[in-house]
Every structure is written in C-alpha cells, then in structure tokens.
Design a protein around this nucleic acid. Sequence first.
DNA 1: AATGAATGAGTCTTCATTCAT
DNA 2: TATGAATGAAGACTCATTCAT
Lengths: 209, 209, 209, 209
Amino acid sequence: MSIELSSTVTASPAEAKEPKRERGKLRVAALLNAGGELFAEKGYDATTMTEIAQRAGASIGSLYQFFPSKEALAEALFLRYAARAAERLDSFAKLAPGLKPAQLADLLVDMKLEMHSHRDAAIALSESIAAIVERRKPLRDVTFAKIAAILQAMNPALTERQATVTAAAVQQVMKSVQSLAMLERETGQPFVAEARKMLSVYIAHALQA
Amino acid sequence: MSIELSSTVTASPAEAKEPKRERGKLRVAALLNAGGELFAEKGYDATTMTEIAQRAGASIGSLYQFFPSKEALAEALFLRYAARAAERLDSFAKLAPGLKPAQLADLLVDMKLEMHSHRDAAIALSESIAAIVERRKPLRDVTFAKIAAILQAMNPALTERQATVTAAAVQQVMKSVQSLAMLERETGQPFVAEARKMLSVYIAHALQA
Amino acid sequence: MSIELSSTVTASPAEAKEPKRERGKLRVAALLNAGGELFAEKGYDATTMTEIAQRAGASIGSLYQFFPSKEALAEALFLRYAARAAERLDSFAKLAPGLKPAQLADLLVDMKLEMHSHRDAAIALSESIAAIVERRKPLRDVTFAKIAAILQAMNPALTERQATVTAAAVQQVMKSVQSLAMLERETGQPFVAEARKMLSVYIAHALQA
Amino acid sequence: MSIELSSTVTASPAEAKEPKRERGKLRVAALLNAGGELFAEKGYDATTMTEIAQRAGASIGSLYQFFPSKEALAEALFLRYAARAAERLDSFAKLAPGLKPAQLADLLVDMKLEMHSHRDAAIALSESIAAIVERRKPLRDVTFAKIAAILQAMNPALTERQATVTAAAVQQVMKSVQSLAMLERETGQPFVAEARKMLSVYIAHALQA
DNA sequence: AATGAATGAGTCTTCATTCAT
DNA sequence: TATGAATGAAGACTCATTCAT
C-alpha cells in the first residue's frame, strides 16, 4: 500500500538522476541533507544552489549531476519526507483498534515533532515551488485517507465522510505543532501539551458523534 | 488601546513615506493593494517591484517615491493587516461576557474568513522578510493577549497562564481556517464547519477546566 | 504592400521593447549595431550578451531592458534586414519593364553586396536561432514573390510557376554573392563578375523560355 | 592523387586516435555517425558531447578515448566528408572528355544530393569551428582544382584562370542544391530541376566562351 | 512629483573536459 | 579499457534600486 507520488501527471521538471556508483549515493545523500537544512534555515528562494553544493562539500557541477534543477532537488526532498510520513502513519494504523483518543493525539504530535528534525519538512510547505504544489495534493489525500482509516478503526461506526472531515481538522492541528514547539522553546509555556489536549478533546468528541 | 507595532525597536528599513496630497494617497492605496494581491498570488520573492508598479498603474519610480524598498512595502502591508486584526479582536472583547464557546468560535472563524479577502494576510506569514519576522512577535503577543482577555471575560476563573496557552491553541486553529476554506472550495466537503466545531469543543473544554 | 513579418504565428519569445525616450532610441540603435557586428564576426552562439553590451557602451542590464533575450535581439536584427531587403526589391520592381537580363543581374548582385555592409545579413542565415528559422520562411516567400514579379514584368508571357521557380534559383545565386566577394578579396580572381555573368545568362535563358 | 587535408599546417587540436581493435572501429564509427546526425540536426554548438556518446550507446569517457575534444570529432567528420567528395570528383574527371554540359550538371547535382544523406555535410559549413575553418580553404582549393580540371577536359581551350573562376561559380550552385531540395520537398515545385537547368546553361556558356 | 532608463551583483544552469575506480 | 562522477569557468538572465530628465 505504498504511495504513488511519482506519477508524472503534470509536466514536472526533469527528475533527480539516480546515482549508479557508491560514491554517487553518498553525494546524493549529502546534497539532500544540505538542501534540507538550508531550505529550513533560510527558505527556498533565499537558498542558493552554490550554497547547497558548498555545504555538501561538492562542486556546483556535482550538484547538477544529480539534481537537474533547484526544483528537482526540492522535489526529491519532498518525496523523501512524504515517504517517511506515510510510513509512520501506516505503522499507527496497525495500533489503531486499541487506541484511546489521547493516545492517538500523542502519537500524532510526537510524529510531527520527530519528523521536523528531518528538516525536509520545511519544503513541504513552500508555496513557491510549482513542482511541490502539484505533488502536495496527492500527499494530502493520502494523508487524509490514512488518518481517516485510523479513526474508523477506532470507531467503526464512523462514516467515511465524517472520518475524512475529521482527518482534515486533525491534520491542521498537526501542522501547527511545529510553530507551537518553537513558541514553547521561546517562552517556556507548555504550548505543545496544549496541542495534545486540543487534539485529544477533539478526537474524543469526533469519535462519539 | 491601539497596538504599537510601529515602534522602531530593531532597525527596520526606512519606512513608507506619508503622502501629502490627495493624489498621493490614492497612489499609495493602489500600490498597497497591488502589492497585497501580487504577494498573495505568487509569493513575496516571486513578485517584482516593477510588476507591482504596473498593476497599480504607476511607474517604478513612483513606487519608490512612497516605499523606499520592497521590504518597506511589505511592512506597510503587514501593519495594515495587523491593525485590522487588532481592531476586530477589540470589538469581540466587548461582547465577551455573554458569549458561548460556539459563538466565539464562529466569530473568530468568520473573522479569518473575511480578513483573507484583504489579501494582506499572506505576507503575515512570509518567513523571508526580516522586517516582518521581527514585527510578527509583537503582533502575536498582542493577539494572544486579546484572545486571552476574551477568554477570561468569558470565565473570570481562568488563570492568566491558562488563558494564554489556550489563546495560542485557538490562534493556531484560526490560522488553518484559510487552508480549510480552500479545501472546501475544492472538494465540497464541509471543512470550515469542522473547524468551527473543533474550536467550539476545545474552547468549551478549556473554559471549564 | 509592406511585408508582415511581425505576425506572431508561432510562439516566439517576448519581443524587443520600444524605447520611449530619446536616450533609449540611441541605446537601442547602438545595441543593434553592436549585435549585428559581433554576430557577423563570431557567429551567434559565440557572441556573448555581455560582449554586445560592452561594445555598445551599455551595461548588461540596459541591454536586457530593450531586448528581453538574445533571441529577441537577433530577431530584431533580422527584421531590420528583412525590411531593407524588401524595400530594395520593391524599388527594382518599378524599373522592371525596361530592364535587360544583365541589368537585373547587376542590380541584384549590387544589392547583396551593399546589404552585406549592413552586417545584419549574417543572422539571416543562422540555423541555430529558432525565432529566425520561423521567420525565414515568410521572408523567403515574400522575396520569391517580389523577384518573380520583376521577372514577369520583364516578360509578361512568363507563367506564374515558371517565374517562381526561376526566382528561387536567382535567389540562391544571390546568396552566394557574399562568399564569392570574400573569395575575390582573398585571391584577387574576379568571382563576383562571374556571378553576374551566370545570373545574366540564366535570366536571359529563363525569360525566353 | 589523394588529398592532403591532414597535414598539420596550423596547430589543429589533437587528432582522433586510431582504434586498434575491431571493437574500437565499431565504436568510432558509431560515435562519428552519432556526431554527424546530431550536428546536422541541431548544429555544432547546440550538440553536447554527452548527447553524442548517448546516441552512440557509449559513455562519455569512451567518447573521449577516441576523440580528445569536440573539435577533433568535428574534424574527423569533416575529413570523412572531404575524402568522399574528392573521390567522387575524381571519378567524374575520368568521364570528362565526352561529357556534355547538361550531363556534368546532372552529375554534380546528383553528387550533392547523395552526399547530403551522409549528414557529415553539415559540419562542412560550420563557421564556429576553428579547426574546420582552417581546413576548409584547402578543401575548397582542391575542389576548385578538380572541377576546373573537368571543365578543361571538356574544352581544352579554356584558360586556367577562366576554368577556376567558372569552377567557383559552379561550386556555389552546388552548395545551394541542398536548400533547393528541401524547398522542393516542402512546396512540390521543381526547384532541383531548375538548378540543373541553371548549371547546364551556365556551363554551356562558359565552355564556349 | 513622475517617468523610464541605467546599473551590476547575483542566480541558475550548462558543458567540455578530467579523474578515479 | 570502460564507465560515470567531479569540476568550475562561463553564459543568459533577473531585479532591487538609483538617476537623469
């Protein structure tokens, strides 16, 4: 039940080239990490391809060997992120039957918290990358479906429709976890815990309805 | 009780020049609107000063007459947005005492929905504009304080701290209203209503705690 | 009966921007000349936009102010050339009735010789500029038609078809005048005179047939 | 009576390495053909070494094994073309004594038509390859001499000088055959036949003079 | 005050060629 | 020998900002 985000529906820019040698694989990983970090630090537009190459200890030519464009790099990052998120959600699905609202809330919040350490997350949000805006919809749909499935597993009486709508709301709260975590670091107030509470209360409410 | 976002705490870019004549005011308004639209449509980085001038029917020279830099324009937009938001929230404060959770939820959601038609909202989010990142914190604090005040007016027993934390969570949900509204337009599913529900449930829960 | 080469049949790149100030007009002319010279000297691909700007005494930004792309510059050059050629041919048409073959041959050869001093001619040949390859066909058709008209004026008995086919052959010989002139300069042999003779003999033959 | 185009008069780029084994010869041929095709399709500058290697089913490293530079490859192609042309012309020389103008015209036009199927012809024209510009003059001289010899064989009374000059004109017409053939394919008009006629008429005229 | 031209540092991207395995 | 990764100079083009009229 793996996601199929790679389908070329709209003409997206040339995709990342697969390295064929060991050395190439290392390079690609380094490049991807450098890109993820920098995009997270300064944003997509403000990040320079040269900068990415430098941080990865590669030459600009080397960067372009594997990623034919800035967009392609961002796309690869996004795909990596999407794959990880999907994997995570799938693992939750197996636990679903016995889960209580508060537990699911925790799982989801923790997931977000951890995923963000993989800085790839940032690009997922970028509005300025056409290739990603395109791919975001399918990812979103997949995510909704997975969350909805978990919810239905927790309460089989839930209608398809209700599950979907709830999933959307849940996902929105998840999206805000990152900001709240930063806020918490800044002010010391327990914002993340509040997010858990909100999610928990809402999920509980949604499941009985 | 006006907000004080204009104070030059940190070195912000030269500020927009106040137009003296009637004609100038129209120009400024046109420029601001053009900028707001464009930023909302294509993002801050992707929008050019020339483009903004064109859409406003002005020359590039004229644009720089009033806004000494791109950042200054963005800042002006942000300030306009912040002022409107604060005003809105103040008006809610007066109604607070008699408000039920669901009613407050509706007021807040509706506010977001309406404010977005003033496209200025978009820049509020931009991570890439230093001048705004700076100003965002004070705005956020002001907003939290105002929402917290409303909550406390609804339940005087609420502690300062609890009110603040709740305000943050509430604000995060408000932030997601925009996305949900777009999603609703796209899919026809009642996502906004779900946001209202979530907010309502959560506020109710928070107020009794 | 002016040529219509500007019609945007296929999507050609953004066209040259018309200067609105006196200074701009001078710039555009200087830029065009610099481009014409350089393209003629080193070929389209080998010529750098920076180089063109430099030779015209302008900055690279200034060059792009008027010509949004290298191709657009080449196109403008081509159009200038085409207009001049058409004008020239039209003037011949008026003289046609009393012309003898040798006289027409001379007119055509001289025309080529003079036009080449307007170095614009070179680009007309470039196979590597999409925008020009496109425009070449209409120019060619117009040219054929004009030459054919001259031939028919010289001998009204000539069929439309015969005139067209002859025009093509004539034009090919004209195209080779440039090379022959260079060869003549190099070797001292009277190659251009030979071209005149060939053209004259062929035209005479074609007209009686 | 073989041509001596390979002599290193001016410093030409390191020459193509002769393959020692059978496999190498196939590689070289494939590479040469790929290069010829690509150059003909998109021009010298627009063609990449990588592309050439790919089309030949070789790696870039392999390409450089045999041709130390892009120019060297182009040169090899040019030489192959020149050799074939010279061979052709030599064969005509033997027939010369009994030839009539129209027959020679046909031979020459047919030769051009056939040679073009060996796409190598294209590079022969490239103005942007130093190594070829250099070699073009000797080729041209050889060609002139051969054509002149044929003409003198047809009419021994022809002066050396007259023969040379005529040869140049003849060669120019030959050069245009390619364009005319394309035009014919495009429009259906008998342009090539017209070229034959022109050549025939002109040669006849030149021979009696 | 208004307009449009001028500037040039900075960006992405390309590609011939060289290297290491 | 074959392959694919590495390199970096170079080129087209952009755009915020400043100037001259």
